[in-house]
Amino acid sequence: MQGVLSGFLVIAVVIGVGYVIGRRGNLGAQGSEVLTKLAFHVASPALLFTTLARADLSVVFSSRLLVTALSTAAVAGVFAAVGVARGWGVGRTTIGALCSSYVNSGNLGIPIAVYVLGDASLVAPVLLFQLVGVTPVALTILDLSTAGGKQPLWRRLLTPLRNPIAVGSLAGVAVSAAGVGIPGPVWDPVQLIGNMAVPAVLLAFGISLRGSTLPLRGGDRGAVLLAVGLKAVGQPLVAWALAAGVFGLRGAHLLDVVVTSALPAAQNLFTYASSYGVGERLAREAILISTALSVPVLVAVAAVLG
Results as ranks from 00 to 15, higher is better:
G77A: 10
F79Q: 02
V67G: 07
L108D: 08
A76M: 08
G89R: 09
I110P: 02
I95Q: 11
G109Y: 12
A76D: 01
S58A: 15
L57G: 11
I112C: 11
Y102V: 00
R54V: 07
V67T: 05
S63N: 08
T93A: 13
V84P: 00
V67L: 07
A76I: 03
L57Q: 10
L98Y: 10
Y115W: 08
S58M: 01
S105C: 13
A113N: 08
V84M: 14
S105L: 08
N107H: 13
A97D: 05
V75F: 01
R92C: 01
Y102M: 07
A55G: 10
L70W: 12
G89P: 06
T93R: 06
A81C: 09
W88A: 04
A74N: 06
I112Y: 10
R64K: 12
V60C: 09
A73I: 05
L70M: 14
R86T: 02
V67N: 07
G83R: 02
F61C: 05
R64L: 10
A74F: 14
V82T: 00
S62P: 00
T72V: 13
T94R: 05
I112T: 05
T68N: 13
S101L: 06
N104G: 02
I112E: 10
G106V: 03
A113L: 06
I95P: 01
A80Q: 06
A76S: 15
N107G: 04
V78T: 03
D56T: 03
L98D: 05
C99H: 05
V78R: 04
A76F: 01
L57V: 10
S63M: 06
N104T: 01
N107W: 09
A69E: 04
T72Y: 15
I95W: 11
P111A: 12
A85L: 13
G87K: 04
V75D: 00
C99V: 04
A80R: 09
A76N: 02
R64E: 15
I95H: 01
V75T: 11
I95N: 08
G89W: 02
A81Q: 02
I112V: 15
A80E: 04
S100G: 03
A97R: 05
V59G: 07
C99L: 13
A74S: 14
R86V: 05
N107R: 08
V60I: 15
I110F: 14
N107A: 11
V67S: 10
A74T: 15
A113D: 06
A69R: 00
V103D: 01
L66N: 02
V90N: 04
G91S: 10
N107C: 02
S105W: 11
S100P: 01
S62G: 06
A80I: 11
G109H: 06
N104F: 05
T72W: 13
V114M: 15
S100N: 03
F61P: 00
S71G: 11
A55N: 04
A73P: 01
V59Y: 13
G96E: 09
V60A: 15
F61K: 10
